[in-house]
Design a binder for these strands. Sequence first.
DNA 1: CAATAAACATGCAGTCATGTATGTTTAAGC
DNA 2: GCTTAAACATACATGACTGCATGTTTATTG
Lengths: 208, 208
Amino acid sequence: MVRKTKAEALATRNLLLDTAERLFFERGVSKTSLADIAKAAEMTRGAIYWHFKNKYDLLQAMMERVRLPPETLLEAPVENAPLQAMRDYAVKMLRDTATNPRRRRVLSIMMHRCEKNEDEAKALTVRQQAAFIDCTSHIRLCMTTAVKLELLPANLDTDKATTMYLALLFGLISNWLFLPDNFDLEADAEALTDAFFPMLHHSPSLLK
Amino acid sequence: MVRKTKAEALATRNLLLDTAERLFFERGVSKTSLADIAKAAEMTRGAIYWHFKNKYDLLQAMMERVRLPPETLLEAPVENAPLQAMRDYAVKMLRDTATNPRRRRVLSIMMHRCEKNEDEAKALTVRQQAAFIDCTSHIRLCMTTAVKLELLPANLDTDKATTMYLALLFGLISNWLFLPDNFDLEADAEALTDAFFPMLHHSPSLLK
DNA sequence: CAATAAACATGCAGTCATGTATGTTTAAGC
DNA sequence: GCTTAAACATACATGACTGCATGTTTATTG
């Protein structure tokens, strides 16, 4: 019953990724063994070891499925409307987190069900840190562009503003994933995002 | 070489907690075995099993060492100066996270080196969620009190304001622990905190 | 149509972590 | 001064989980 067609093999791979995503979300990464995943997918560990090098390779592939380049989300042209770009980015991230089950599960795994340590999973941590740094510099570019376009105060401390933006965005996502009943992320995504930008005009401590 | 005095036994217990704190921080919780901890503390697993029920009991005791009741930090009287209370709370939390190595390590373990799952560690997760809910209701009380004292707009959506406050606070801490070089938490604690409150006056989307 | 290799399944060895049971020593209580 | 039990150390049994080696079958290719 082996040597399936290419499409079938890809389906198997996706099934393994789906199953791993579910189990990692339910039990956490370290408490989920490859045998657990194989059994839940009605396969054997042989299938996993054929498609993936090991557990962390599987985890990485699972995370790659929701990784989208920042440009994808930033549809509004940054050079013309950087404030709109930042707003759209935040709203889309929040709404997608609230409504897209896959993104919700994977983000939850990344934030609350996967340990950042120095050995095997270090590559994963480094990758996440790199993504975060990318995101940081992108937002910083939006901030400085907005200042140049005189959309924000000339003496705005763009570094602090960037820090605040990212803290708010990630804080909202992390807190909601931790306790989804605490507030309605989908309904409030726009209001919470829009609340941020007046701060850049009215907070003296963000000026240089 | 056994049957030490009570003080010595307490010192042993603290040594085990210190060592666990260090190893959990360096390697993550699930990748640190009790044998690792015992060896690093120059003890045996027998000592650990004498002082603690198991690994998660040890972890819980380790976390309790930095748990401080919210009242401790909220020195400013909430009824008279709720805004000041919230400001002081945030600044103290941020500064203490930046300067207190123990708090930094333990918060890092809680946020980035410990998986929230449904089985053994569930008690820990439930406890953290309860603490978060406590904190939420406390901040909400500050917000409503400030509205009553006319320190904040009468039509402020205090729920959203609370959500924003907590997202900012936890987002700042989490992001800084994740990438400490991204910004200077100690130096910027006050400025970042002070930046928040003008938002409550100038953000239309936070009004009802 | 034969050979190859893809796509798994199965089995085994080895390591490692946990929990417990049982020693051992000595501070404390009387 | 004798007993008890606190404060560990040691040893053992048990049960994963991983990685690899080796089947097995069938789509694919020339």
